[in-house]
């Protein structure tokens, strides 16, 4: 599904190398987790994958089902099936949540040469999916993320994911700012979307989220590289011993 090969990235403005050769291969239907200390390049990886400005790819490649995504605009990547759940979802005053969702769904459909969703059909689907995430009609009417609590913002991200039905979902510290119940709700939303054709890359600091979203593979990222990969037990090791042991071991 997603192939990252020798990805090297620097910040455009500071001429600072952030990613120093990331290799990652995620198969269809798999859930991979990336853990790592602050500043290791986790969030940069998610931004580079989704096409945010300000990063310069100096080497390597990223393909989604064999197609180069680095050449694509962010909206083209989205239409190709890539989705990033933001660590800090952006507030957009004046744009209704529902309007935004519908615009996004139909823009992607149009880009893929599919028919747009009718207003009625859209409403039916969005209500159903919102209900599962405990998002009420009021929240759908409000401007995108404006005045939402931390939990509401993250649930809203998952709702967008559910509506857009991407094949490659990247969750950037989706657990940050969530209490235990909110995390469970978000995790349930994610789990409901797991399927054979859909892969996940879960970026997190804590093993706790991985209790709810069970990964197939766990990667440890440090200093711009993936330094160790293993099964779910790797996350437990981090939880118990911190990163020091692992980093010492690979150094």
């Amino acid at each position: 599904m997603l192939e990252i090969k020798g990805l090297e990235v620097k910040l455009q403005e500071e001429d600072k190398q952030i990613l120093k050769g990331v290799n990652l291969s995620i198969g269809a239907g798999e859930v991979h987790a990336i853990m790592g200390p602050n500043g290791s390049g986790k969030s940069t990886t998610s931004y580079v994958l989704s096409g945010k400005d300000g990063y310069e790819v100096t080497a390597g490649s990223v393909t989604l089902d064999g197609v180069d995504v680095l050449e694509m605009e962010p909206e083209e990547r989205a239409a190709a099936g890539l989705f990033l759940a933001f660590q800090y979802p952006v507030e957009i005053p004046g744009v209704g949540n529902m309007t935004f969702l519908r615009t996004a769904v139909n823009a992607q459909r149009k880009a893929r040469g599919e028919d747009e969703m009718s207003a009625g059909e859209f409403l039916k689907v969005v209500r159903e999916k919102a209900k599962a995430l405990k998002i009420d009609a009021e929240m759908l009417k409000r401007p995108v993320n404006v005045g939402f609590s931390g939990g509401e913002k993250k649930r809203n991200e998952i709702l967008q994911m559910a509506m857009l039905e991407p094949k490659m979902c990247i969750l950037d510290e989706t657990d940050s700012g969530l209490d235990v119940d909110a995390m469970k709700l978000v995790a349930e939303g994610v789990n409901a979307l797991r399927s054979e054709g859909r892969s996940f890359l879960v970026i997190t600091h804590y093993q706790r989220l991985l209790d709810h979203i069970k990964p197939d593979v766990v990667h440890i990222m440090a200093n711009g590289r993936i330094v160790k990969s293993g099964g779910p037990e790797l996350a437990l090791e981090v939880e118990n011993n911190g990163y020091a042991d692992i980093l010492a071991e690979v150094a």
Binding site: S50, K52, E73, P74, F83, F86, I92, G94, A104, A107
Partner: peptide
């Protein structure tokens, strides 16, 4: 906001117009 909207599939022009 522009990047956020683009990352959901809304083109740059359409996103700018919405904003």
């Amino acid at each position: 906001a522009l990047f956020y909207m683009q990352s959901r599939g809304v083109g740059r022009k359409a996103a700018t117009d919405l904003l």
